[in-house]
Structures are given as structure tokens and as C-alpha cells.
Amino acid sequence: MSIFRYCFESRTDFSTPVRDHSFMLRSFPLVDARQTLLDSRLRISPQPDSLSSGHDCWGARIDYGFQGEAHSSFSYVSEGTVKVIPYPIADKSPSTLFLMESRMTVFAAEMASLIPEMRGTSYEKALEISSRVKSAMSYVKNVTSAETTAARAFSLRQGVCQDYAHIMISVCRESGIPARYVCGMIPGEGETHAWVEIWSDGAWHGLDPTAGKICDDRYIAIAKGRDAGDCPVVRGIFKGCAVQSTRTISSVEQSEQ
């Protein structure tokens, strides 16, 4: 078990003021069998006209609201303390949904080379898939975007953690292994990270194809879903003609063991 202090900051600047700004944030560590939130705070600036909270259908906390008045920046800070225990997460029967192709994880014939022919448990196969994804891909920023699909990223053989996770999910599902996408934080990363949970023998296990390793208790999940499309950390829509630039920083520090 580990306890972490986390701080997630995001600031968006608009080139000209915008108004009627609706937003939705996913900025809290997910509360589940693996994670307990000890304390948490969210501050949004400027103070929105309305702010509500709830959970998405995968259990992640959502905070959403509306800012009517013209404003030229939008920023928020989410911080607190979270207790994390190691994987696995017990689950007797995973939803069949995690075996189905999702929009961003459609399997491409080209990815067949990543399917392991070996015998073994789903966990062992998933480990093999994870390492094949890592060796097939090169970590390169700014060649893919948030909208890039698994098939596209694989054809480029380049991408970031989101792309690695999508490719691994696609290959796992094609191999009959339930898999889901996780968006979260790890110490020392400085921005959000993405990894994969696969289901084997009655439990979900965390695997990180980008780092080529098994997730330990330093992986703090924020949101989960079929693919990255289910886990945006911030979304907004506003009226105005402005160029926006967003800067996001996350810091995670271990506070005690």
C-alpha cells in the first residue's frame, strides 16, 4: 500500500474572451477496490455560475458546470491524498463490452503479428502482447493526436502512451482477453498517463505497454472505459472566436509507505 499527495493543474488561455462556457472535468482519483481518497479539493477559476458533480458510467468522478460571463482563461487545481493498494482488482465476471471493438480500438489485419500463439493464461498472453507492442512501437510525441485510432498509430509505429494502450487493448480483445483503458497519474510523469487493465482468472490486472512493465501501486487511476474516448480529463464548449492553449501539469509525491 502507498499513500500519495497528488496535484493536478490545468490552465487554458483564450486569445479573446469567450462566454457561455460549459465544461466537464475528470480530475479526481477513481474510488474503487484499489484506491481510497483520503482528502480532496477542487478549485476552479474563475468561479463558475454553476458547478455540479457526479460519476460517469465507469465510476469516475465528473465535475461539470457553466460559466456565462466573458472570461479569457479557465483553470483548475485538483489536489488531495490517495491511498493505493497493488493490483489485481477482483471481478467475477467482466462485462462482455470489454471484449468488443470500440471506436478507437478497431483491430487491423496488420496487427496480427502482435497476437501471441503461445499457450497459457490470459495474463501470460497479455504480458506477451504488452512486450510486443513496446518493441513494435517507438515513443514519439506529436505524431498522433487524442483522436488517433489504434490502427492508425500502429501503421505509423509511433505514438504516445494512449496509442500504446489502444493497440494493446485491440490485440487483447482480438485474442479473447477482456481489456479496458485507464487514464491516470504516476509519480514523476508530469502529465497524465495511460495504461491497460486486462481480465484474467477472476481479476483485473494492470499492465503498462509504454513502460513495458506490470503496474504497481504507484499507478493512480482517474478514469476507465472502452478507450480514451471514454476518459477525457477536460472538455469544454463555449461561444466566441478564440484560439485556446492548454497547459496541464500533474505532480504526485509519495507521502508514506
Binding site: 460549459s22 466537464m24 455540479s52 461539470y64 477525457p232 464548449i237
Partner: peptide, 20 residues
């Protein structure tokens, strides 16, 4: 656009939460 297709300009932001 905040719950589903982000690029949509035809919807009502956060309508899904009000419906829920």
C-alpha cells in the same frame, strides 16, 4: 458534446447529466 461526440455543435452541453 461533453458526454458524447465532442465536436458536435448541434447539442446541449451537459444535457445528459440533467436527463440522468
Amino acid at each position: 458534446p461533453l458526454a458524447f461526440e465532442a465536436s458536435s455543435l448541434l447539442g446541449v452541453p451537459n444535457l445528459f447529466q440533467a436527463y440522468k
